[in-house]
Design a protein around this nucleic acid. Structure first.
Lengths: 214, 214
DNA sequence: CGCATGCACTTTGTATGCGATAGCTCGCGT
DNA sequence: ACGCGAGCTATCGCATACAAAGTGCATGCG
């Protein structure tokens, strides 16, 4: 019966279309495809080893999610400019502030400890690793959005974070120390259970990102 | 050959797939397809007079937009329950409050007058017209979300409103007078340019909806 | 009489083929 | 030399065809 590797879970599960969807998502987030690139279906389909049909379906879904847009009759990778980036940060300031206030005292201690440890490791790493930076960022903000008790709010935040990640001109390396510092303040506040403080720290973090990009 | 009505602009323009997308969107919003319904592709495709391919593409896009979800291997119309409805209202309270504050004094006087006139007509109509109620609602909230100067914020609000509209158990008729009253208060505040007041009125409106559904 | 097994039908997933069209190149005319 | 049009090619939109998978029913056996 041996299903071969069950390990990567849904690697062959069912859904060629879905696999393509996650693959293209990764291509975009990792900027192998970057904003404004026009997507030629046949080329990308062949590159991924599938026919155009599942690729097209994945692209339609991505269009719904806002990762690609249709320009004329071809898909192009969504380009996020400075204006939209800043607007998203402003909304995140509001939403993540609220979510942080709600999450204060609710996020599990174990999760907080793990996240803090990862920040420490990131800071003491000998070389800068963008991947680790992103992951740590994800963890911190997930702490805020996943435990706020309002899944809809969490969903909004995740979507906005996706948009901000699409902004390519951000110089990530410069943000290592500020991010880590501000992240630590946020999770300290979460741990303390002080909602007001958590909101303030989360908002400060967003404003810091804002100022860093003007 | 007769392409019939060209009037509604892009009725035949290009894009069978897109037409199907808007058609299905309407079917869902008008609850001809209601939450939880499982969609059989061949049936719906035939009903719309197209083959399964453009229908599937439309459905994938709708999945990305969150109007349908995949349950197992078939699409089902997204069902919004009370919990999610209330969560959405909570987020809307935050977001529309902010947007109203930003829009105060910025929304064009002409637009405001039109909206107010439509509310008056709605109130004095001899019979209750759900369609007109929805449209007026759209107009008021568009006033808030379209002129807040932050398109990202506006987009979030539109999406949340879509979610709340998917909640089917709401008894719309009972809301006619409260909605109209609160809407008038909101646009009065917008017109006056008092951001603080506008925020307050928008938030009160959301809390009113919230309480009406507990 | 109940349960298991297999068959047929329904429905989805993917590939492929064909017609249409947009964008491009090249040549012609001014 | 520059603009414009005609033809060509690359690419898209859609339909159809086929394969796989799930489901329910019927039939036969214990």
């Amino acid at each position: 019966m041996q299903e071969s590797q069950m390990a990567p879970a849904k690697l062959n599960d069912d859904a060629l279309s879905d696999r393509v969807h996650v693959a293209v998502t990764k291509l975009i987030k990792s900027q192998k495809l970057h904003g404004g690139d026009i997507i030629v279906e046949s080329r990308l389909a062949e590159m991924l080893g599938v026919s155009r049909t599942p690729l097209r379906e994945a692209l339609q879904k991505l269009e719904g999610e806002g990762l690609v847009v249709k320009n004329g009759r071809s898909f192009v990778v969504r380009a996020v400019g400075l204006a939209e980036y800043l607007q998203s940060l402003k909304v995140r300031e509001i939403l993540e502030g609220e979510a942080a206030a709600l999450s204060a005292g609710r996020a599990p201690a174990g999760a907080i400890r793990t996240v803090r440890k990862n920040i420490d490791e990131l800071l003491s790493a000998p070389v800068y690793l963008p991947e680790a930076h992103w992951q740590s960022d994800d963890e911190v903000h997930a702490l805020v959005s996943d435990f706020c008790g309002n899944p809809v709010l969490g969903q909004m935040i995740r979507h906005l974070r996706m948009v901000t990640r699409l902004y390519e001109k951000l110089n990530l390396a410069d943000r290592l120390v500020p991010d880590a510092t501000e992240h630590l303040e946020i999770i300290d506040a979460l741990e303390s259970g002080d909602g007001r403080l958590a909101r303030q720290k989360a908002q400060m973090h967003m404003r810091s990102l804002y100022k860093a990009s003007i």
